[in-house]
Amino acid sequence: MDPTKTETDGAKGTPLSTESKVLETGAAAGQNFGPVKSICAHLNAFHVYASDPARCVEANHYCSHLNEDVRQCLIYDTPAPNARLIGVEYMISAGLFKTLDADERKLWHSHVFEVKSGMLIMPGPNGLPTGIWEAAETKEMEQVVGLYGKTYHFWQVDRGDKLPLGGPELMMSFTQEEQQPGLKELIGERDTRFGVDSQQKKEKRGYIEEPEIHTGIRSTISQALGGDMY
């Protein structure tokens, strides 16, 4: 999935007609699109299926803030203009997470490993010096490390589906590098495409304090084996 691609492969259907393109251009010129314009961050990481920890998928998050405690993200398979919308993620502060009941907590995950390992990145704009962008990215990670996420995917692109088939799939975050064979290679391939070094990011984020991970969230490994929650 080349981040410079202008189209996404694999969706079933016919190309846009001239009429649809004209209507699309007119709508774009005349409508506000306020909720979409509030998107302020592009984050890239990998999500793992809660129902099958052997499967994972790359996820491009486009996130906006509702307030200081709540964020909401649209998730696409690539950063291309006509990428497939594959899911959504909500992120909340630790304070709000502590108000959730035990059953609800099982649907949420921590971002600590994603941040501290360098897996979670904020792809930078072309032409901006790397050092300047990484400083902004690291400040963003200082906030994300303490947030809890609830994610559902509707389009299982990793199995080659041409349409969003079946019910929604609850997704989780990785909690350790050994959680899935080949994860290191997946991250390396992603890094190459985006021109980043997640190991370097791990070192730069070393100073970020790891927050307490509150009890009740799902551990994809232990749940697959019939074990306990964190």
Score class of each variant (00 low, 15 high):
Trp108Pro: 05
Trp108Tyr: 09
Trp108Val: 03
His109Trp: 05
His109Met: 07
His109Ala: 08
Ser110Phe: 00
Ser110Met: 00
Val112Tyr: 03
Val112Ile: 06
Phe113Glu: 06
Phe113Tyr: 10
Phe113Leu: 06
Glu114Asn: 12
Glu114Ile: 03
Val115Ser: 01
Val115Lys: 00
Lys116Asn: 01
Lys116Pro: 00
Ser117Pro: 01
Gly118Trp: 02
Gly118Tyr: 00
Gly118Pro: 02
Gly118Gln: 03
Leu120Tyr: 02
Ile121Tyr: 06
Ile121Arg: 09
Ile121Met: 12
Ile121Lys: 09
Ile121Gly: 06
Met122Val: 14
Met122Gly: 10
Pro123Arg: 00
Pro123Trp: 02
Pro123Thr: 03
Pro123Gln: 01
Gly124Thr: 02
Gly124Asn: 00
Gly124Ala: 02
Gly124Asp: 03
Pro125Ser: 02
Asn126Leu: 14
Asn126Tyr: 13
Asn126Gln: 15
Gly127Asn: 02
Gly127Ser: 00
Leu128Ala: 09
Leu128Cys: 07
Pro129His: 01
Pro129Cys: 03
Thr130Ala: 15
Thr130Met: 13
Gly131Ser: 03
Gly131Gln: 01
Ile132Phe: 11
Ile132Thr: 10
Ile132Asn: 07
Ile132Met: 12
Trp133Arg: 01
Glu134His: 09
Glu134Gln: 13
Ala135Gly: 09
Ala135His: 11
Ala135Arg: 12
Ala136Thr: 10
Ala136Met: 11
Ala136Val: 13
Ala136Ser: 11
Ala136Trp: 08
Glu137Gly: 03
Lys139Val: 11
Lys139Ile: 12
Glu140Asp: 14
Glu140Trp: 11
Glu140Gly: 13
Met141Lys: 08
Met141Ala: 07
Glu142Asp: 07
Glu142Arg: 09
Gln143Pro: 09
Gln143Val: 15
Val144Glu: 05
Val144Leu: 08
Val144Arg: 06
Val145Ala: 00
Val145Leu: 00
Val145Pro: 01
Gly146Met: 02
Gly146Pro: 00
Leu147Lys: 07
Tyr148Thr: 02
Gly149Ala: 10
Lys150Phe: 11
Lys150His: 14
Thr151Glu: 08
Tyr152Glu: 11
Tyr152Ser: 06
His153Met: 09
His153Pro: 06
His153Leu: 10
Trp155Met: 05
Trp155Asp: 07
Trp155Pro: 02
Gln156Arg: 15
Gln156Ser: 15
Gln156Phe: 13
Gln156Gly: 11
Val157Gln: 05
Val157Leu: 06
Asp158Arg: 11
Asp158Phe: 08
Arg159His: 10
Arg159Pro: 07
Asp161Thr: 04
Lys162Ser: 12
Lys162Asp: 12
Lys162Asn: 10
Leu163Arg: 14
Pro164Gly: 04
Gly166Asp: 07
Gly167Gln: 09
Gly167Trp: 05
Gly167Leu: 10
Gly167Ser: 09
Pro168Met: 04
Pro168Tyr: 04
Pro168His: 05
Pro168Lys: 04
Glu169His: 15
Glu169Asp: 15
Glu169Tyr: 13
Met171Trp: 03
Met171Glu: 06
Met171Asn: 04
Met171Thr: 05
Met172Asp: 08
Met172Glu: 11
Ser173Glu: 11
Ser173His: 12
Thr175Pro: 07
Gln176Asp: 14
Gln176Phe: 13
Gln176Asn: 15
Glu177Asp: 13
Glu178Tyr: 14
Gln180Met: 14
Gln180His: 14
Gln180Lys: 15
Gln180Thr: 12
Gln180Leu: 15
Pro181Glu: 09
Pro181Asp: 09
Pro181Gly: 07
Pro181Tyr: 07
